[in-house]
Amino acid sequence: MAETYTATLDRIVDGETAVLLLEDDGETIEQLDVDVGQLPQDGQHEGAVFSVTVDGETLSEAAYLPDVTQSRKAAAQERLDRLSTKLSDRE
């Protein structure tokens, strides 16, 4: 039975294998390793977010979500900026 998840591209190993972290309700629930060629080319970078359909342990569809990717990147940068500001205030 096919299931749909949000997935984040954690890393690409040896230029061939994409390591996707599947999410459910914002929590990472599983890792799925796929051939990087199965992913849309514009999303073949670390941190890219996809909507994926998985049938068993096989990726059957992947759609790149550029807006979600950018939003998560911006949120992470804001957290880092806040942390670095708080650390510099301590000195």
Rank of each mutant, 00 (worst) to 15 (best):
M1R: 08
A2Y: 12
D89R: 08
I12M: 00
L59N: 02
G47D: 04
R72L: 15
R90F: 15
V68T: 14
E16K: 10
Q41I: 15
Y64M: 01
L20Y: 00
T4N: 10
H45M: 08
R11F: 02
Q41W: 13
G43I: 07
D89T: 12
Q31E: 10
L32N: 06
D25W: 06
G26S: 03
E91W: 15
E27V: 13
K73V: 11
A48D: 05
L59I: 02
T4Y: 05
A62T: 01
V19C: 00
F50Q: 01
V13F: 04
V68G: 04
V49S: 06
D10C: 03
G15K: 01
E23Y: 07
V49Y: 04
T53G: 02
D24V: 12
V68D: 10
L32W: 04
A75N: 13
K86V: 14
E57Y: 10
R72H: 11
L87I: 14
G47N: 05
K86C: 09
L32V: 05
S51N: 13
G37F: 11
A7V: 02
Q31M: 11
L59G: 02
V52C: 02
S60H: 08
R82W: 10
L9I: 02
R82M: 10
E16A: 11
T17S: 06
E23M: 04
R79V: 11
A7I: 03
V19K: 00
E16D: 11
L65G: 02
E46I: 14
R79W: 08
V54E: 01
V68F: 04
Q38F: 12
Q77E: 14
Y64R: 00
E91I: 13
R82Q: 14
T53N: 03
L32E: 04
P40R: 06
V52H: 00
D35S: 10
S60P: 05
D25R: 08
V19I: 06
K73P: 12
S84G: 09
T85L: 12
E78I: 15
R72F: 12
F50S: 01
E30R: 11
Q77V: 12
T53E: 10
H45V: 06
E16Q: 15
T17H: 06
D33N: 12
R79N: 15
L20F: 01
G56I: 02
E30M: 09
D55A: 07
R11L: 05
T6F: 14
A74H: 12
I29A: 03
D42Y: 09
D33C: 09
V34E: 05
G15P: 03
S88L: 08
L83C: 09
V68C: 03
E61T: 07
P40M: 07
K73S: 14
L80V: 13
L32F: 05
Q31F: 12
D10R: 08
A62D: 02
D35G: 07
S51I: 08
Y64P: 01
L59F: 04
E3P: 03
G15C: 02
S51V: 10
L22V: 03
G56W: 03
D24C: 10
P66A: 01
T6D: 13
Q70K: 14
A74Y: 15
G43L: 06
L83E: 15
T58P: 05
D67N: 09
